[in-house]
Amino acid sequence: MAQIRLVNVCKRWGSYVGVDNFSLEIADAEFLVLLGPSGCGKTTTMRMIAGLEESTSGEIWIGDRMVNGMEPKDRDISMVFQSYGLYPNLTVYENIRFPLRVRNVPKAEHDARVMRAAEMVELGPLLDRRPAALSGGQRQRVALARAIVREPNAFLMDEPLSNLDAKLRVSTRAQIKNLHHTLKTTTIYVTHDQIEAMTLADRVVVMNKGQVQQVGTPTEIYDRPANTFVASFIGSPAMNLIPGHIAGGVFGADGMQVANLAAANGPVTLGFRAEDAQVVSDGGNIQAPVYAMELLGDATLVSVRIAGALVAVRAPKDFRIDIGAPLQISVPLSVVHLFDASTGARIAL
């Protein structure tokens, strides 16, 4: 097991900055998720930790060793990739066993370690099959078992669920969560899927354009986003963000007013989540015609347009209304977030 530290780590290709001044301490046995859109630097950060990419500057520590310049094989980490990377000519058993052979682990230990790893991911009945005879979910479990059998200091997982369908993603996600609880091995997990981040992580690092936007628990990031990027990236649907002005403690935008805000006069962006507001028959602080209605099964998502922004609210699952019909939405003061109109940074209320 190992603590992992990154100190002012940068990666540049000429004038292009892939990762900019990244510093973070990852605790022993922590499950940390690097989250962000494509091109934000999350995979590059993981590849630098693994030794597959050389950092331009900064220090990377695994345990008490600075590993800059150290070969990947000497860093005592296991990786699980988006592509399964299985050997098609080998059985499931031999694919799982392969890291033990490469690292010259005594043969007497192989069978017990392979069987233990296979049991953890429920592959016992499939050990004699070859990858071509497996489903996508089963292949991903083989890749997980191959990483487990190493018994490394840390796991690095790069979008391991991206090739699976929605149902398999849910079940494999639960398996990864249970594995981490059982193994208690430091894990760094890269994803663009905020649901994976929220359900798996002890802490989430939200990245954009090579820079860290916010680090915190899933609850902290969801409840108190540091800026409009985090607010718009976390949540399904994303937080409603409405441009407007504050004058005398009242936020105003076309079709919306919120009073009693303790904030300075001027342009701001107001945010609230769809589940924190409600449709009302009278006295709402949003009044606008219905733009769209979506049935979600457990709720109905109703959207309106306010100041050019699409704003969604969750209504009861049996709620029905025609597109174009007038709608009133109540947004309590207690659920409102304010962000600086120019920088996007959170404004304390």
Rank of each mutant, 00 (worst) to 15 (best):
D128C: 00
D128V: 01
D128E: 14
R129G: 10
R130H: 14
P131W: 00
L134Y: 02
S135W: 02
G136T: 05
G136L: 05
Q138H: 13
Q138L: 02
R139I: 01
Q140L: 05
R141I: 00
R141C: 04
R141Q: 09
V142P: 00
A143N: 13
L144N: 05
A145H: 09
R146A: 10
A147E: 08
A147K: 13
I148P: 11
I148T: 07
V149F: 11
V149E: 03
R150D: 07
E151C: 02
P152C: 07
P152Y: 11
N153A: 15
N153M: 11
N153W: 01
N153Y: 10
F155E: 14
L156R: 01
E159G: 11
P160W: 00
P160Y: 07
L161G: 07
S162I: 05
S162R: 10
L164H: 09
A166R: 12
K167M: 03
L168I: 14
V170Y: 06
V170P: 07
S171N: 15
S171I: 13
T172N: 14
T172M: 14
T172E: 04
T172G: 04
Q175W: 02
I176F: 09
N178W: 04
L179S: 09
H180D: 10
H181L: 12
H181I: 01
L183R: 13
L183Q: 13
K184M: 04
T186R: 03
T186N: 05
T186A: 01
I188R: 13
I188N: 12
I188T: 12
D193F: 00
Q194A: 06
M198I: 14
T199E: 10
D202G: 08
R203I: 00
R203A: 05
V204D: 03
V205I: 14
M207N: 05
V212H: 08
V212M: 15
V212E: 09
Q213A: 08
Q213V: 06
T217M: 01
T217E: 15
T217Q: 15
T217A: 12
P218W: 05
T219P: 00
I221H: 02
I221C: 01
Y222G: 01
Y222W: 12
D223Q: 15
R224L: 11
R224A: 14
A226P: 09
N227F: 10
T228K: 01
F229D: 06
A231V: 11
S232Y: 03
I234V: 15
I234G: 08
G235P: 12
S236L: 08
S236A: 13
P237R: 02
M239R: 13
L241C: 14
